[in-house]
Design a protein around this nucleic acid. Sequence first.
RNA 1: GUCUCCUUCGUCUAGCGGUUCAGGACACCGCCCUCUCACGGCGGAAACACGGGUUCAAAUCCCGUAGGAGACGCCA
Length: 463
Amino acid sequence: MSIRVRFAPSPTGVLHIGSVRTALFNWLFARHAKGKFLLRIEDTDKLRSSNENTKLIFEILKWLNIDWDEEPVIQSKRAERHVEIAKELVNKNMAYYCYCSPEELALKKERALKDGNAYKYDGTCRNNKIVKNANPVIRLKAEFGGKTTVNDLVQGEVTIENSQLDDFVLVRSDGTPTYMLSVVVDDHDMGITHVVRGDDHLTNTFKQIQIYKACGWDIPRFGHIPLIYGPDGAKLSKRHGATSAVEYRELGYLPEAILNYLLRLGWSHGDDEIISREQAIEWFSFDTVGKSPSRFDIKKLQNLNAHYIRQRSNESLMNYLTLFLKYEINDKQKDFILKGMDGLKERAKTILELAETATIYIQSPDKYDISCEKYATSSHLSLLKDVIEIINNMEPIVEDELCAAVKELAVAKNVKLIEIAQSIRAALCGKLVSPSVFQIISILGKEETTGRINAFIKHFGGA
RNA sequence: GUCUCCUUCGUCUAGCGGUUCAGGACACCGCCCUCUCACGGCGGAAACACGGGUUCAAAUCCCGUAGGAGACGCCA
């Protein structure tokens, strides 16, 4: 039988980076096994779910190049079916109506907590046939004897005593199905063979198995992957910085870098670090997924991102970075950036950074960093005039020749090359960090270069 | 509190009883390259949570202890 897995996010927030990893593992597992990867939107919490979030989930998955098979299942549309199953269970005496009020239960829960016990529903209505007027919930008649063992793809064999379970709710008093019910019915109806999800669901699994048993359905295999934590070891959340895939996209992280990073978080293939899509599909297996939680390390993501930026073609980066510019650029500016891309891309950790540094080819500096003043002394300005001289006498400007000529100037004036180079850099870029100044000059051309240098001389010479 | 899971350098991890005084990657430090910053190259510091077993031999198996995480909802 062919493998069928699913990714089932709830559209209650923007897609969490940990969810993306769950999606990735499911997807890799399916593609490796040549099975199906399905999507299900768990939007039963109508208050917190939104269509915008649902759309964003699809959009991000597409952006990451995680493709899915078949039409996504929208869970909220299947509520009737879920309730129907619960009613069948009532008819089969596997479930029952419970009339306990939330207030009564809250009281019992409080008491249990005070005594230091885990709260479990006490089964008041289990054998009570008294039908009250209040809107009842439907509870599953849980099995209390014996144990249940799950042979988890990641966690191995996990066993709990069934006495730990209670008669949990399948259908709420307002007639809507609970998550526990919906998941099981949908997974069954979708023909899911392997349920792969975050390990925060591990204990839910035992409840869900009871539903499967009550319905007489085949139980799928389960795989619970550890969650991602922040640098301090607590669950990754807002206070750690960006948590959603959307944010990482906006910060200028490449999909291939995010995927590679997420893949290596909790999974490994020997000493391999840089892993392509194809290799990932070929190598992926749950055998090498670790059980211990891992911490999110932005520095490593950045390193990977920088690597994949260098891997990308200049044209592809060009198109990408225009999305990050706040204004339109003309063909000449595009041409400049493209020519300078080799120098730009090995300095950028994100596309956002790339776009920022690329502005040196778009506009002259609107201000000079305070650090530039060091290279704007009268002797520096005098040297810059000599540089203008050199540039004006060179036709056309060739990077190497220009470099050689400026080096000669340095020797002739008995100054270090760095004094001249940094001075030029300050004049051209307004800061002391940039690609090679000789490359920048050869790209900007005579007019733009001398214009910027003259502006610099004027700015500091007048003072 | 109860149940379940986890524990190798700061971080991600390799290791699945001997070939490892523990390997790689990121980060960090130093050197080289060098017009700055990067890139690249070379080198360095840095870990088997603790305590008992089992065994000729344990990071690797077993049992405790400590620490951490998750679950215990008419949320998903």
